[in-house]
């Protein structure tokens, strides 16, 4: 199976290891990976800031980069959701629709398309899972605490396949961390307070690592952890699912 890798811009620039882990993990599971070299950004930062109309060129570029592939996989729920919800290209909407239906967030691709049941991964640590909102409430990667509906979680399903990993229970299972794109700087005070509260919940459960399917949330939590002098680290779920030491 050929998979086109869609690496969000901030992962490309700041967290290349997340991209590498994603690629290696998919290769281990038998996928052939293509990385369209001219990808930049999905356009979400502009769109969520109210400038969707400025994302036209980004959308065209995205379409150009990815329309040839049947499976497009991205290690970010938020960027995936943005493409799914908002990729429109005037004059080429049929193609855009197709791309929207072919883009997958990494964990849902693993559980739903590859139907992974076993992973050769080991991560002997106590880990807290941060449910990023766009992945959870937008892509339904896991059940939402607001709904009267049976529980499930694609990321947890995968983390349970990792040897030695001990998953912590949080007091607030799916509270937002406060990153929120440009919200993190335009509403700095509330954003940071939300992040501090998320971190505190994980610290209370004595985790060694905070993981999640969205590096943007983890980057925000990492910034707070490091400022607070905490030893707890963040690790994208791809890095844990790909860990073999």
């Amino acid at each position: 199976m050929t998979v086109a890798l869609f690496i969000p811009c901030y992962i490309d620039q700041f967290y290349p290891n997340v991209g590498i882990a994603t690629l290696q993990l998919l290769e281990k599971l038998g996928c052939e990976i293509v990385f369209p070299p001219n990808q930049t950004c999905c356009g979400q930062p502009m769109a969520n800031a109210g400038f969707e109309h400025l994302a036209t060129n980004c959308n065209q570029l995205f379409l150009k980069n990815f329309s040839a592939y049947e499976y497009i996989v991205c290690p970010s729920g938020s960027c995936t959701l943005h493409i799914k919800d908002h990729l429109h290209v005037e004059g080429d909407n049929e193609k855009a629709n197709q791309v929207r239906n072919r883009v997958y967030e990494l964990t849902e691709f693993l559980t739903d398309v590859l139907q992974v049941e076993k992973l050769n991964a080991r991560f002997p640590h106590r880990v807290g899972l941060h449910q990023s909102c766009h992945g959870q409430r937008g892509l339904h990667l896991s059940q939402m605490t607001e709904l009267v509906a049976p529980p499930y979680s694609k990321p947890v399903q995968l983390l349970k396949m990792v040897q030695g990993l001990e998953l912590a229970d949080l007091n607030r299972k799916d509270e937002c961390c406060g990153f929120g794109g440009t919200f993190c700087v335009t509403e700095e005070a509330v954003s940071v307070k939300m992040g501090k509260d998320r971190v505190a919940d994980h610290l209370q459960q004595q985790v060694e690592f905070i993981t999640g399917a969205d590096m943007s949330c983890l980057m925000h939590l990492e910034g707070i952890l490091r400022r607070g002098g905490q030893r707890v680290q963040v690790k994208h779920i791809a890095e844990i699912l790909n860990a073999s030491n």
């Binding site: 967290y15 700087v185 940071v192 992040g195 910034g223």
Partner: peptide, 22 residues
Amino acid sequence: NAWYKQREMPAPPKETFADWYR
């Protein structure tokens, strides 16, 4: 930098994922 006020910036790596891939 509103980010830096109460948060550390991410450590900038030497190479991007695209560099590594190339």
